[in-house]
Nucleic acid binder design. Structure first.
Lengths: 143, 143
DNA sequence: TATTGTTATACTCTATAACTATA
DNA sequence: TATAGTTATAGAGTATAACAATA
C-alpha cells in the first residue's frame, strides 16, 4: 500500500473510532434526538454567537440544505431561535435558547471525554503538535 | 471552546474535506457503484491477501453486518470471490478477482491524489510527523 | 457457550437540484 | 444576476438485534 493510501485509511479509521467512542456518551445526553451533526451545530453556534446558516455550514463542511433542515429541527426542539437579520433580509440570525445552552454544555463534556480517550496515547507536546498540524492542513482554502 | 472540542471539530472537518475531495474522483472511477466503503474494503483485501470478513471489519472499524452486506455486493459485481476456510468452516476466505484488482488500482490512484491535495500545505517532514502521530494514536487498543 | 457470518429494520447523513425571496 | 435559505428525493452509511451454522 502506498504511504498516501495508508494515511487515508488512518484518517478514516480515526474518525470511525472517534464516532464509536462518542456515540454511547452522546446518546445518553442527546435527550432531544438531534443527532451528531445537530450537536455539532449547537457547539458552533455557542462559539460564534448569533450567526447565519451559511457560516455554520462552512464551519462544519456541511451543505446548506442539511444545515437548514437541522436548524428547523433544533428550533422545533426549542434549542435554537431564528430571526431575520435587520440589514440583509436574506440572512438568518441564529442563537441558542437557555435549553440549547444546557445541551451544549453536556455535549461539550462528552466531546472532551471522547477526545481525551482517543488521544490517550499522546503526551501533551504530541497532542499540541497534532492540533497544530491539523490547523495547518485546514488553513488551506480548498473545500 | 475547549482545546478538545476544537480538536474534535478539526478532525471531523478533515474527514469531511477528505470525502468531498475524494468523491468526484472516486465517482468517475466507481463504475460498479460499490460506494466509498466498498472501495476501502477492496483496498484492505488487496493489502492483506485472502482474509475474513471480521478482519476487514476490524481494520476499517465497521460492523460485521455492514461488511457482510457489502461483500455480497462485491461478489455480485464480480470484484471479489468468497470461499470457506478449510480448517474453520465458520470463516470465509475472501480474495480479489482480476476485475477487483483493476478496480483497486484505480481507487488507489484516486486516494493518492486526494491525499496529496488535502495535505498540500504540509512539507515532507510535517507529513511524516502527521502520519507518525496518527500511527501512535491508532496503536491504542480501544475500539 | 462463543464465534463467524447473514438478514432485516429504522434512522441519520449526504449530494443534488429545483425553488422562493431578497440584494 | 448572485446570494441566503427552503424543500424534496434518492442513495449510502450506521447501529442494533435476532438468527443459523460451526467450533
Amino acid at each position: 500500500m502506498t504511504d498516501e493510501a495508508i494515511l487515508a485509511l488512518q484518517i478514516d479509521r480515526l474518525m470511525r473510532r472517534f464516532h464509536s467512542n462518542l456515540h454511547p456518551r452522546a446518546e445518553r445526553i442527546d435527550k432531544e434526538k438531534i443527532g451528531p451533526v445537530g450537536g455539532m451545530i449547537l457547539i458552533v453556534i455557542s462559539e460564534s454567537g448569533p450567526t447565519t446558516a451559511q457560516l455554520i455550514g462552512s464551519t462544519l463542511g456541511r451543505d446548506k440544505s442539511q444545515v437548514s433542515r437541522l436548524l428547523n429541527l433544533l428550533v422545533k426542539k426549542g434549542l435554537v431561535e431564528k430571526s431575520t437579520n435587520d440589514i440583509d433580509a436574506r440572512r438568518l440570525e441564529i442563537r441558542l435558547t437557555e435549553k440549547g445552552l444546557l445541551q451544549v454544555a453536556a455535549f461539550n463534556g462528552a466531546l472532551i471525554e471522547a477526545t481525551k480517550t482517543i488521544l490517550g496515547n499522546l503526551n501533551k507536546d504530541e497532542a499540541r503538535q497534532f492540533s497544530n498540524l491539523l490547523s495547518k492542513i485546514m488553513a488551506q482554502h480548498s473545500v
